[in-house]
């Protein structure tokens, strides 16, 4: 799998991400794992600002900055063009935020997944429209503060992984900047699979989560260890597997370091715990179901 001597950094210093940015870390790790023979499509989001502020680029690979709602079809189109020109060794990756994925880009993403276009889609989820000033998206968790949900969002976070799994794409996985090795392994795995691959990476944002800038990675670790954001893979929309067994720490450990949850009372924290447990159990059922089927 991931071998140190074959990888190099394809992202440069000097970019304009906020200090401690989780998106920058994720982008760096994704590109390390993909290697030089990669074309990126990046749509408006923090990632796009980090990648380039004209005329300067922070990437060592070619990247196309598309429109907000078209990360997926643009990448699929480039992938087709490469195929026509007989260039099979170049990976195409679409990089989008949660707004560009869960909300505005969902339709076009669904289209490419439906056709099982050959490319990798990476959603860098910081759980709000951060680049434009912390507006809620359908990836914002229930009860989280944003400027458009001052009392906390009321709807729950959309389960994008289930949506993608429902398309029966060959590979969908969650990954976290707190587990860089696991993240890079998944990127490399996706690279080797034909068809549409989807990676959902939680990228904590100090600015939008109202959190100290040194804590983004610890927040990512806590999101995993509290089972708020479990690490798992889904093959062909059906075969689920947990890639990292979380410790099951209380969700409060995760919530308490973030200002966006500061208004929560004990009852709300307890409900967050119950909801997290339910989600985990439902995920776990998927895993055991397919283990049982596999055993038959």
């Amino acid at each position: 799998m991931y071998k140190e001597n074959t990888v190099e950094d394809l992202m440069r210093s000097g970019h304009f991400a906020c200090p401690g940015c989780g998106v920058a870390i994720a982008m760096r790790l994704v590109l390390r794992a993909l290697g030089r023979k990669t074309i990126a499509v990046i749509i408006p989001s923090c990632a796009s600002i980090i990648a380039a502020t004209h005329p300067h680029s922070a990437l060592e690979i070619p990247a196309f900055h598309g429109t907000f709602e078209t990360a997926a079809p643009t990448a699929a189109g480039i992938s087709y063009a490469l195929k026509i020109r007989g260039k099979s060794d170049i990976t195409v990756v679409a990089i989008a935020g949660d707004g560009g994925t869960f909300d505005i880009g969902l339709q076009s993403l669904s289209g490419t997944a439906d056709r099982n276009e050959h490319y990798i889609y990476v959603c860098l989820d910081n759980e709000a429209y951060m680049n434009t000033g912390i507006q809620a998206s359908s990836a914002t968790p229930r009860r989280a503060w944003t400027i458009t949900t001052p009392a906390g969002r009321s709807a729950r976070k959309k389960n994008i992984m289930e949506i993608m799994a429902a398309h029966r794409i060959p590979y969908a996985a969650t990954a976290s900047i707190g587990y860089p090795q696991d993240l890079m392994d998944k990127v490399q795995k996706a690279k080797g699979i034909e068809g549409t691959k989807f990676l959902h990476i939680l990228t904590p944002c100090a600015t939008g989560w109202r959190m100290a800038e040194n804590l983004t990675v610890n927040a990512a670790i806590l999101s995993v260890e509290t089972r708020i954001f479990p690490l798992y893979e889904v093959f062909d929309g059906k075969k689920y597997g947990i890639t990292y067994e979380p410790q099951g720490l209380p969700v409060e450990e995760y919530l308490k370091i973030q200002g966006r949850y500061r208004h929560l009372d004990a009852g709300q924290i307890e409900r967050m715990q119950t909801e997290t447990d339910e989600e985990w159990e439902s995920l776990y059922r998927h895993v055991t179901d397919c283990q049982r089927k596999g055993a038959l």
């Binding site: 210093s13 000097g14 970019h15 401690g20 940015c21 760096r28 390390r32 860089p180 990675v217």
Partner: peptide, 28 residues
Amino acid sequence: LLCPDISIAKEGDRIYRVDKDYCKGCSI
């Protein structure tokens, strides 16, 4: 691996060098 600003260079086994020109001091 986790420096958002790619400001820590690995120069050998357990040898790391911080590039002060780009380190934003995030303390990650």
